[in-house]
Design a binder for these strands. Structure first.
Length: 157
DNA sequence: GCCAACGTTGGC
DNA sequence: GCCAACGTTGGC
């Protein structure tokens, strides 16, 4: 049994929020158009990994919930759709450029863990802080546990 | 709304 | 393959 990994995935809540995910239950994490973030989904994520849902570009930015990676990587359908804002004319069905995974809702935090709380708790080594504009970053196990504590929650087995 | 950080594009 | 110009992210 391989070791579970942990991730943090950003979304602007006015575009797609933790409440939307709670309603939808499971979604394609579509629209990633950054190679490093794509590579994480394509090469590193495994089914069963946990990820935090992070609300970006709002005040205050915060971790607001927990989800689970629930598919293998596959081609992001929106890259083939000329009507989508994520359409990529340089991509093709035979040689897709953009990959994604599905995520499913686990729980929404009753108490958001804000960016400031992460700093105050000494979690300044997080990739979130080191990799400014990267929308998917890895979270270490000790960081993951600490963040759940800050949210007043226990890990789910 | 500003702007720093930084990834991407394209001319050469 | 360098790098200037440009566009985007996202905190503040």
């Amino acid at each position: 049994m391989s070791h579970k990994q942990y991730w943090l995935m950003k979304s602007e809540p006015y575009a797609y929020s933790i409440d939307d995910l709670q309603q939808d239950s499971q979604i394609h994490w579509s629209g990633v158009r950054n190679y490093e973030a794509r590579n994480i989904m394509r090469d590193k994520m495994k089914i069963g990994d946990r990820a935090f849902f992070y609300h970006s570009n709002v005040n205050p930015p915060a971790i607001v919930g927990e989800m689970e990676i629930c598919t293998e990587p596959y081609a992001d359908p929106s890259q083939f759709d000329p009507d989508s804002k994520y359409f990529d004319e340089k991509s093709s069905e035979s040689n897709p450029r953009w990959q994604l995974v599905d995520v499913k809702f686990i729980r929404k935090f009753e108490k958001d863990v804000t960016r400031d709380m992460l700093k105050d708790a000494g979690l300044t080594d997080m990739q979130l802080f080191k990799r400014n504009r990267l929308s998917i970053t890895q979270v270490e196990e000790n960081e993951f546990k600490k963040i759940l504590e800050l949210a007043g929650l226990k890990p789910i087995e």
